[in-house]
Structure formats: structure tokens, C-alpha cells
């Protein structure tokens, strides 16, 4: 009986081997970011971007949003007035992709930006870029103003944090392009 139990336990070990992919650390949850960034909103909508918007983003950035990236989360007041919108996207880096969230006001200016998810390895370089859960140096930027990596996490030392500031700035620029193209399409 003891041998049988031992064999069963060992077989359990054997069945456990299968490739897995390293999960990210969740710093901020998406829903929490939407609610906190668009605090005046009472109604929320998921906006799936149409082909013309995706084409405009590709033309501007050379990057094609994936199915998951090609969405906006829009907040409105009861009367329907736009409070703002949020873009989530994944940005590749040498140590795996990181998820960036950018909230825009109705005029397209950045209300808040943050890193939502990041791998365990780059976490130590990304965390110093965040102040109270947000990325400094990008708030208030208009859609025509590209984020300056040197202003993101001004106090974060080290080459790797600076590298991640560039990666994040690239992600924010892509989010701006999505927002700009989406607003442009809404006006048409």
C-alpha cells in the first residue's frame, strides 16, 4: 500500500511538467484605473475601434493595434456628456511586454497614465517611475505633444529605469494616436 501511495505521489509529480509562461505582476487593475481616472463619469462604455481608426493609427505610428488594444473605455455623465476615455495597450520590451493605461480628458489631454502590469524581472526598474501609482511628467500633455522619456520618473536613477521610461513613452504615444484617431473619426 505504501508503495502504491508513493507511486501515485510520484506520478503526480510527473504530470506537473508543462511549459508555462511567466505571469505579470498586476500593479493596478483596469477597472479600478478607469473608475479612478474618470471620477465624474456615471456610465461607462467599451468602444471598439473601426477599421479607419486602426488604419490611421498604423499610418501615424507604424504599429497595428491588436484586437485587445483596439478598444477605448469611455466615461460619460448621466446626461451623456463625455468625461474622458481610457486606452489600455501592451508595449513590448526586452524583458517581456508591459501594460500601460492612459486616461484622456474630453479635450484629449492626458489626465493620468500608469503601468498596470509588468513582468517580475523589470518590476524593479519600472516601480521607481511611478509616483502614487501614476507616471509623472505626462499629465496635461495635449494630443499634439509627444511624451518626453526624460520627464517620466525624473527621480528614478539607473540606465534600466531610463530604458523603461522610453518604452513607456512609446506606449503613451501609441495611446495618444488611438485617442486622436478615435476623436477624429467621431468628428467625421
Amino acid at each position: 500500500m505504501r508503495r502504491l501511495l508513493l507511486c501515485a505521489a510520484l506520478f503526480g509529480f510527473a504530470l506537473t511538467l508543462d511549459a508555462h509562461v511567466t505571469p505579470n505582476v498586476v500593479l493596478v487593475r483596469r477597472g479600478d484605473f478607469v473608475k479612478a481616472s474618470l471620477s465624474g463619469a456615471t456610465k461607462f462604455f467599451e468602444k471598439t475601434l473601426g477599421a479607419p481608426v486602426i488604419a490611421a493609427v498604423r499610418a501615424e505610428t507604424g504599429w497595428t493595434p491588436s484586437g485587445e488594444d483596439a478598444k477605448l473605455y469611455v466615461g460619460r455623465e448621466d446626461a451623456g456628456r463625455l468625461v474622458g476615455s481610457v486606452v489600455f495597450l501592451w508595449v513590448p520590451s526586452q524583458h517581456g511586454p508591459l501594460s500601460v493605461g492612459v486616461a484622456f480628458g474630453p479635450d484629449g489631454k492626458i489626465l493620468r497614465a500608469t503601468v498596470l502590469e509588468v513582468g517580475t524581472e523589470p518590476l524593479v526598474w519600472v516601480r521607481p517611475l511611478l509616483v502614487n501609482g501614476s507616471l509623472g511628467g505626462v499629465e496635461g500633455l495635449a494630443l499634439s505633444q509627444a511624451p518626453d522619456p526624460s520627464r517620466i520618473g525624473l527621480l528614478a536613477p539607473g540606465a534600466m529605469s531610463r530604458y523603461y521610461a522610453k518604452v513607456i513613452a512609446e506606449g503613451i504615444a501609441r495611446a495618444q494616436s488611438i485617442e486622436k484617431s478615435s476623436l477624429g473619426a467621431a468628428k467625421d
Partner: peptide, 9 residues
């Protein structure tokens, strides 16, 4: 992708 952007609650 749809021809136009779509919004749903």
C-alpha cells in the same frame, strides 16, 4: 475590424 467604431455599455 468593423467599418465604424462601436460603443457598448
Amino acid at each position: 475590424p468593423a467599418a465604424v467604431s462601436e460603443e457598448k455599455p
